[in-house]
Computed example of a mutant assay.
Amino acid sequence: MADAGPTAHTPDVVCLHGFLGDPDEWRPVAEALAPGLRCRTPPLPGHDGAPPPGQTFDALADALWARLAPELPPRFALVGYSLGGRLALALADRHPQRISALILEGAHPGLQDASARAQRRRHDDAWARRLSTGSWLENLDAWYRQPVFADLSEPRRRALIQRRAGHDPQHLAATLRAASVAGQPDLRPALRRLAAPCAYIAGARDQKFSAIADDLATQTPGLTVVKIDGVGHNCHAEAPEAVAAVIQRICTGEHP
């Protein structure tokens, strides 16, 4: 587990990357945090050089917790982007006594009807088949041309493809099948149950997840919603200092 903190006795913040991501992408955020916050950045299952353990969302969450729990203090803050945010919310619901704060970035809380789940399952299965066959670089290029990444510039897209090229496509395809939103429970009630301070970050240019943020705000009393101007889906990569500022405020009780 990567560690960007100064001592072993400062508060812990665990940052979870998204699908296709890696722990080092959190380093600019970790460097922007105040010295009093110790930042840990573990790899997600399926992104650590090994195939994902199990074939369901719950299995991924169980495996991630089994790896995290022994290394962490009794209470810690949990931050997650996209898939990492979905797993963070699931872990916070299962182990609320361990969570001092929860910050989600561009994370889907879950689908609420059977037809949407079926449609998403078809979508993710098709992508999993595509990722596991043909040219890995061409498939990555196609992935980052989906509507949710429409704000990416060509240089930024090329940089992401180059960074993701080291992943094993078979592992990632299996992870996508297991981690599909189609198989994730609706975690909106989990967010409402959590007593710890919670925040949701979305890029102002990310229309889909900005709308999700607004919806969650109406349903979740006390949820802090922050929309970061000028960025799209991947806020911590595009605006690490702004994301670090949100983490800092929530973890220290200084809400915006």
Rank of each mutant, 00 (worst) to 15 (best):
D3G: 03
A4C: 10
G5N: 07
P6I: 14
D12S: 12
V14C: 06
C15I: 03
L20C: 02
L20Y: 04
L20R: 00
D22Q: 15
D24V: 12
W26E: 08
R27M: 12
V29K: 07
P35T: 07
P35Y: 04
G36Q: 14
G36F: 11
C39P: 15
R40P: 13
P43A: 13
P45N: 02
G46V: 01
G49C: 09
A50T: 14
G54P: 01
F57I: 08
D62S: 13
D62E: 15
A66D: 13
A66L: 11
P70D: 00
L72H: 03
P73S: 08
P74Q: 14
P74E: 15
F76S: 06
L78S: 05
V79Q: 05
G80N: 01
G80R: 00
Y81T: 00
S82N: 02
S82H: 01
G85I: 02
G85S: 01
D93N: 11
Q97S: 14
Q97P: 07
R98F: 06
R98K: 10
L102N: 06
E105A: 05
G106C: 02
A107C: 02
H108L: 09
D113C: 08
D113G: 09
A116P: 06
R117A: 08
A118P: 04
A118I: 08
Q119M: 11
R122Y: 08
H123S: 13
H123A: 13
D124N: 03
W127F: 11
W127L: 14
R129P: 02
S132E: 12
S135Y: 03
L137V: 14
D141W: 13
A142M: 02
R145G: 03
Q146G: 04
V148W: 10
D151G: 09
D151F: 08
P155G: 09
Q162M: 10
R163F: 05
H167S: 11
H171M: 10
A173V: 01
T175K: 00
L176Q: 06
S180A: 07
V181K: 14
G183I: 09
Q184F: 11
P185G: 09
R193N: 09
R193C: 07
A196W: 04
A199D: 03
Y200I: 05
K208D: 07
F209W: 14
S210F: 10
I212N: 05
P221Y: 05
L223R: 01
V226I: 13
G232Y: 01
G232H: 01
H233L: 03
H233M: 02
N234T: 14
H236R: 04
A242R: 12
V243M: 08
V246S: 04
C251V: 15
G253F: 08
E254H: 14
E254F: 09
P256W: 00
P256R: 06
